[in-house]
Design a protein around this nucleic acid. Structure first.
Length: 593
RNA sequence: GGAGUCGUAGUUCAGUUUGGUUAGAACGCCUGACUGUCACUCAGGAGGUCGCGGGUUCGAGUCCCGUCGAUUCCGCCA
């Protein structure tokens, strides 16, 4: 096909090009027909330029009149200074006085209008994703994403990392998320799994002596989805030999500093905040605290302060070994209506009720609890919270873990209601020293918190032989997350490289030698040939892009995302396959009755 | 697996509380007018399986049951 190719894109012409003869290729974005004069906005991913069509040029005018939304055109003409300037767009000082126009392709009337402030619902946008992607703010997300890819590649190259591709078809491993399975035609009845992460391969690469591995890779998990979880997602996966936790942190902090500098022109702090898991839970009730909240809204334990009160609810909690704790809200006016909604909120999360004390400006105390609390106890509660007049404290009581986690959620709720989150901030925090195991009450066994290759901290190795729930759960691991604005964006650990420790970990989770050999035989075997001390991490790439783009969901950081039910509305997958295909794989479908 | 919200014109929504005449608006689309617009303006017009199935009723967009889809959250995500 012969057509007049562009000399410029639709976003680059300015006053300096005046009187140049140019050709633009692009899509018809908007038509303004003044009866005589006709203005057309032509759009490509670089921008929008105004075309002017004069009725005197009847052949051009006739074609231009036929143009509809999203027609693809080639327009040639002279760059002119506009009579009235449009300050809203970069090319607003000029227009093209068109003397030649060509329709390269027509378009059906689009199902929704392509504009930045799109009105179409999510499912329609996903069905016509190619149209949605024509919108500048989605294109810009993909362009920013590309920029981060390039920064990351350059950064790791600079630091001596080798990018190695690992298999997409791999062995299904038992622990962790549900695998996506791929049936084998050659080995009927057998399956590959798509990687939940390249965990095992990257550790084996360390045994191979690759020393520093990185990969921007796709991972797949067949679990229920959320706004920040897609069935297939992207990680920056890395692993390093002969390192401690601090070495891994240093490399990753450097990466974020470089990304933020290049993409946002922001200098991140020299080193990131660190909290242990226990501190995070204690202060924020969650292992991914949002540190942007003004006033901190830290959790304060007041069990001791109210120990001798007359309040049955508190005393019951204390007598059964529970906790009484709360949060201080500084200065805000808390209405009856808000307290009622907060009470519903904590009740829905499984607690009996929400206590509160309002310390009024005049020094009086307003609370349904005052009749149970002596003046002394009220005063010591006030001191425990460092509360001043005008502050309100919210108090929960019950089982320690439950109280902490609900306070953690209440904290976020309060920040939302009273707009306490500083949206302009990027608050990074390492969370370290995660528990290695927790006891699964349903399955009556210990399960790994992170994964089974995570190295316990030296001082806890002695508990690997214990089966006492408290002792085993107390084991802390060389395991860490990086949290950004309340989102977990990195998870990693120093790995076990010693067979004897690995065996003990398998013992704790109840994996027999035989099972371990079946499931992880190849990696255990590899580890017998001189595995170096090593560790690494995986970075949630989509989440970082979402945060950089100011999005709550990762959907629009991904060109072709799936819905919460893991289907793609554009290509309608998953889909049925022919009986021939199934026969070849030795698969028959069981119809649900 | 569970809970919430939503589903009405091509699109975004109103109408559902309290069942009752011909289901409305805006944008888009079509026709006409308009030579400096940039959310062009003005006049006119077409356009509906009220997601789908069943039930209650003289009568259902509206009430009830089921189901499908999108979305938010819990469980889940080593």
């Amino acid at each position: 096909m012969i057509f007049k190719k562009r000399t410029h894109n639709c976003g680059e012409l300015s006053q300096t090009n005046i009187n140049e003869n140019v050709t633009l290729n692009g899509w018809v974005s908007k038509k303004r027909d003044l009866g005589g004069l006709l203005f057309i906005d032509i759009r490509d991913r670089y921008g929008i330029t105004q075309l002017k069509i004069n009725p005197d040029n009847s052949s051009v005018y006739e074609i231009a009149n036929r143009l509809g939304q999203e027609f693809v055109i080639s327009a040639t003409g002279m760059v002119m200074k506009r009579e009235s300037i449009n300050k809203n767009i970069p090319t607003g000082e000029i227009e093209i006085d068109v003397n030649e126009i060509e329709i390269l392709n027509e378009s059906d009337i689009p199902p929704f209008v392509i504009e930045n402030d799109v009105k179409a619902a999510d499912d329609l946008r996903l069905k016509y994703r190619y149209l949605d992607l024509r919108r500048k703010n989605i294109t810009d997300n993909l362009i920013l994403r590309n920029k981060v890819y390039q920064v990351v590649h350059r950064y790791f190259e600079k630091h001596g990392f080798v990018e190695v591709e690992t298999p997409i078809l791999m062995k299904s491993t038992p622990e962790g998320a549900r695998d996506y399975l791929v049936p084998s035609r050659v080995h009927k009845g057998k399956f590959y799994a798509l990687p939940q992460s390249p965990q095992i391969y990257k550790q084996i690469l360390m045994v191979s002596g690759l020393d520093r591995y990185v990969q921007i890779c796709k991972c797949f998990r067949d679990e229920d989805l959320r706004a920040d979880r897609q069935p297939e997602f992207t990680q920056i996966d890395l692993e390093m030999s002969f390192v401690t936790q601090d070495d891994v942190f240093q490399i990753l902090e450097g990466m974020f500093k470089e990304i933020w500098r290049e993409v946002k022109d922001i200098d991140l702090p020299e080193s990131f905040t660190r909290l242990t898991y226990d501190e995070a839970i204690e202060c924020y009730g969650i292992d991914k605290p949002d540190l942007r909240i003004k006033g901190g809204l830290k959790i304060v334990n007041i069990t001791d302060a109210v120990r001798n009160s007359e309040f049955k609810v508190f005393n019951d909690a204390i007598n059964s070994g529970g906790t009484i704790a709360g949060i201080r809200l500084q200065g805000s006016e808390v209405s009856r209506k808000i307290i009622d909604s907060l009470t519903d909120f904590v009740k829905n999360l499984g607690l009996g009720g929400l206590g509160y004390l309002k310390f009024n400006a005049d020094g009086s105390v307003q609370s349904p609890l005052t009749k149970f609390l002596s003046t002394e106890i009220t005063e010591s509660v006030k001191q425990a919270f460092s509360a001043g007049n005008g502050d309100t404290v919210f108090i929960l009581s019950g089982v320690r873990k439950k109280v902490q986690s609900v306070l953690g959620q209440l904290r976020l709720k309060l920040a939302e209601i009273f707009k306490l989150t500083d949206e302009s901030k990027y608050e990074f925090a390492w969370i370290t020293d995660f528990p290695l195991f927790n006891y699964d009450e349903e399955e009556k066994r210990f399960v790994a918190e992170h994964h089974v290759f995570t190295m316990p901290k030296d001082e806890y190795l002695k508990f690997l032989d214990s089966r006492n729930i408290e002792e085993v759960e107390s084991i802390r691991a060389n395991c860490y997350d990086l949290v950004l604005n309340g989102h977990e964006i990195i998870s990693g650990s120093i790995r076990i490289h010693k067979p004897d420790i690995q065996k003990k970990v398998f013992d704790v989770i109840g994996l027999t030698d035989e099972e371990a050999r079946q499931k992880f035989g190849f990696i255990l075997e590899a580890f017998r040939y001189g595995a170096p001390p090593h560790g690494g991490a995986a970075v949630g790439f989509d989440r970082i892009i979402a945060i950089l783009c100011g999005l709550n969901s990762i959907t629009d950081t991904i060109a072709f995302p799936k819905t919460l039910k893991a289907s793609s509305l554009m290509d309608e997958c998953p889909s049925e396959v022919s009986t021939g295909q199934l026969e070849e794989l030795g698969i028959s479908i069981v119809k649900k009755s």
